[in-house]
Nucleic acid binder design. Sequence first.
DNA 1: ACTACGTCCTGCTTGC
DNA 2: TGCAAGCAGGACGTAG
Length: 284
Amino acid sequence: MPELPEVEVVRRGLDAHVVGHLVTGVEVLHPRPVRRHVAGPDDFAALVTGRRILGARRRGKYLWLPLDSGDAVLGHLGMSGQMLVQPPAAIDERHLRVRFRLDAPYELRFVDQRMFGGLAVSHGGAELPAEIAHIARDPMDPDFDDDLFSVRVRKRASGIKRILLDQTVISGVGNIYADEALWLARLHGDRPGLRLHRKDVVEVLAGVRAVMQSALAQGGTSFDALYVDVNGASGYFDRSLQAYGQEGQPCSRCGTPIARVSFMNRSSYFCPVCQPKPRARRAR
DNA sequence: ACTACGTCCTGCTTGC
DNA sequence: TGCAAGCAGGACGTAG
């Protein structure tokens, strides 16, 4: 499940291997991953074929490749998306969805089992695709505004976990890093933003950055090969998670078993002692 | 503007 | 053994 650090590793791989190359052909093998390209798969292919890739950029979990036409290929990996760099002779992956032939001894492949991810051409989107203008800056962005984030969080009635997952407030945080950051900050995800102190928000933001940096430090080093792979380059998931997926395991701070609750059709993991649930307030 | 929920997808795991 | 339900979950559309 790629969140910001995984997507950043992919971006670096694309930067190293596909930037500067000419796209000599595009093959869309399944229509669903280009569903956001409203004009359809043929138009998608036509707009990318013959263009040179000028860069590899990222905001939150979105990636885009600026083209020499001023357009950009905008992509999201969703749950299971991968960008692979492969020799043309390599056997097609089972879930290969889009192939980009390059003026190189390898091609770029978008592989996605569950197809929550996708690709589209963003018209004039080289600098910042209009499609993702609503996505907030991410916590690794030098222009991320910590004070503005704090103000926005503290105006919201939603629980802090919901807010962390809201890509219009802060981008790049998914279920795993949200749980880890909240554990670090000793905050329960249901604590309403409205009732957090500024100090709490500072700590949760520091927690987000800490878990992302440590994931990046582990995943960002191992992709020298001519191969960009979210899963292959990872090792993210065997790194020590303190909360996510640790139901029943002792909290490394206090020994209490980590609890799991269902939340928004997914799971939240937390330490019931270090991260006490907020008391319900009586309505007045 | 904010809030909350349902939906899209496939394949692995679990339960009867 | 076989089948169905459960689960994973990011982003978006919609309704309140």
